[in-house]
Amino acid sequence: MDLNTVTDVRDARLREPWRPGDAWLGGGTYLFSEPQPHLRRLIDLSRMGWEPLVLHGDGSLEIAATCTIARLSRFTRTPGTVAGPLFEQCCRAFLASFKIWNMATVGGNLCNGLPAGPMISLTAALDGECLLQAQDGSLRRVKVVDFVVGAGRKDLAEGELLRSVTLTGRATACRTAFRQASLYGLGRSGALVIGALDPVDGSLAVTISAATVRPFRFWFPLPPDAEELRDAIASGIDENDWFDDIHGLPEWRRHMGFRLAEEVRRELTRPTQEGAR
């Protein structure tokens, strides 16, 4: 879609002062999808030269905000990454064309803050941490589960930039389980639940998103039984936190949230074939 109120596109490397009507431009798949009458200038991040994916010596993975979905999906094939399949599953949750995959960015998905954003689901489930950069160059870090604070709302100040998201090596070594539900065969996620079993201490995290206005991550030092999990979700998610739109009523989303969370719990607490021998 043409943005006929935009009069200028500037290179982010110039570090020009932020002014009203500015917006960061990553892949642009959201910006150009609907009218943006409040915008006057786009600040293009495409030439910042950030490495899409960086594996650090401690095993942590840093995902640049400008990393495309297509590039992230290939991380699935990284040797020795137990959680690798989850990256592909979340990328596929977009149900988008190859054109979108090659333009849409991880940072854009997080900064839109939409309940069905699968990059929010992925990074929240693996306890990701956002690196944010202010206009004066100062940096701060915030967990993904705290970065997205509501439907379309995020902890991002005026002119502040999401630079990257970091996942620890321990997180990417987790055994994971993925469940997604939609009202339609190729519809937007109405509920998306991810479980992550820690290989070191045996703790279990269950993250509910898409069904809720923001991601909710429930951590248990030891895998809970069905009743403990249900009680944690019931007490942790307020009635008003279940999302309501054309893709699903809150009652249905709540039902699917509980159902899929239990399926994830059973899958990850079931003895593996190796352990059963």
Rank of each mutant, 00 (worst) to 15 (best):
Leu31Pro: 05
Gly257Ser: 03
Met256Leu: 13
Glu228Val: 07
Glu263Val: 06
Asn4Leu: 14
Ile194Asp: 11
Gly169Ser: 08
Ser164Ile: 07
Val165Pro: 01
Ser138Glu: 12
Ala70Glu: 09
Thr7Asn: 05
Asp241Leu: 01
Glu34Lys: 15
Ala191Ile: 10
Gly159Thr: 02
Phe75Met: 06
Leu53Tyr: 03
Trp242Met: 01
Thr5Phe: 04
Arg41Met: 08
Asp58Leu: 08
Arg77Tyr: 15
Glu262Phe: 07
Ser121Ile: 01
Leu192Trp: 12
Ala12Val: 04
Glu34Val: 05
Leu161Lys: 13
Ala210Arg: 07
Ala151Asp: 15
Phe94Val: 00
Ser60Glu: 10
Gln89Pro: 01
Val200Glu: 13
Glu263Lys: 13
Pro271Lys: 02
Glu16Val: 13
Gln273His: 13
Thr78Ala: 04
Leu132Arg: 00
Ala177Arg: 09
Cys90Lys: 02
Val148Arg: 05
Arg15Phe: 10
Asp8Phe: 05
Phe98His: 10
Glu129Phe: 02
Asp244Tyr: 09
Gly169Thr: 03
Val213Pro: 04
Ser46Val: 01
Val142His: 04
Asp44Gln: 02
Leu131Ser: 15
Leu53Thr: 03
Pro17Trp: 02
Pro52His: 03
Pro223Ile: 05
Gly57Ile: 05
Asn102Phe: 09
Gly28Leu: 09
Gly195Asp: 01
Leu114Ala: 14
Val213Arg: 12
Gly236Lys: 08
Ala177Gln: 07
Glu51Met: 08
Val9Leu: 09
Gly113Pro: 02
Ser189Val: 07
Leu122Met: 05
Asp136Glu: 02
Thr168Val: 02
Asp201Lys: 00
Ala12His: 03
Leu131Asn: 08
Thr105Gly: 10
Arg259Cys: 11
Phe220Asp: 03
Ser46Thr: 14
Glu51His: 13
Arg179Lys: 11
Gln273Phe: 15
Asp244Ile: 00
Gly195Ala: 00
